[in-house]
Design a protein around this nucleic acid. Structure first.
Lengths: 141, 141
DNA sequence: TCCCATAATAGACTTGTTCTAAATATATAA
DNA sequence: TTATATATTTAGAACAAGTCTATTATGGGA
């Protein structure tokens, strides 16, 4: 818990109970959760927490580089506390998001002369091992 | 025009006026438009066209692989009629989306054994040449 | 302890997209 | 042709994700 508080203080974020709990959830649940998943979970811990607080907190975390925002596919914003370089794979059957390693430095690129590239995202989609071997099912992995 | 009709018929899509006009727009305006941009434009050609028709048509095109859906960054779905392999760069200043070439075959990947990969998207963000050389401006490129 | 700034809350609001039911258009079979 | 079935379009309601606003709560420093 202390570690979490320090993580926030180091980034000049006041460690309110709400923020610490959300950070704790992100660290312990590396499932690239949506804001709503976080909100649902928080209701168990702090029943009075509002959705706006979840969004405020996530936006604060984003602005200091504590989490990254993923937008794979449709209408879902997902939050990832793993800030190392990696790609994301989303299963089209069960919806889970998995990390994979990728080194874009190896890649031949063309057409980006004079562009200033600041962020690189790689999103793959398809079927995870579990859904690949169980075609037809579309429940939770 | 005939070519457009054939393009649709070849994919077993009935070539209604609305569909042909939307296809024509996508082919002639390779700006990765949003549904709303398409809708705005269509109002000039077919003033009675409803937004639902724009979405219906785009979803039909998506389902037969005539366009691809891009979701770079936030709340904007964009449609791309260029189905060749390429990456997308979005300028964080002016919002335009640019294509670039990339060959993911060259890339070292790890952690995707047993995954069935069907779609690969590469999204870069940063500043386009114009905005890079005009820091501060955030209007149209 | 009292202030002041910051943060949290509830709910209204906005935006993008889908859904629904009715009207219209098109294709097919008699 | 005409009748009938099917597909498409339309307008607006419904929905969902996220933001905004006004109010209340919190917590650190004089």
């Amino acid at each position: 818990m202390d570690k979490l508080v320090q993580e926030l203080v180091a980034r000049k974020i006041r460690p309110s109970i709400q923020r610490v709990k959300i950070l704790e959830y992100l660290i312990n649940n590396r499932i690239h959760p949506t804001a709503d998943q976080i909100f649902q979970h928080m209701q168990k811990e702090i029943p009075t927490m509002s959705k706006a607080t979840v969004y405020n907190t996530l936006n604060t975390f984003l602005s200091v580089g504590l989490v990254r925002l993923l937008t794979i596919g449709g209408s879902e914003a997902r939050y990832d506390i793993n800030m190392t370089t990696h790609g994301h794979f989303k299963c089209e059957s069960c919806g889970t998001v998995h990390d994979f390693t990728i080194d874009l430095e190896d890649c031949e690129l063309g057409g980006l002369d004079d562009f200033t590239v600041e962020k690189r995202d790689v999103h793959f989609r398809g079927y995870c091992p579990r859904c690949s071997s169980n075609p037809g099912r579309s429940s939770k992995c």
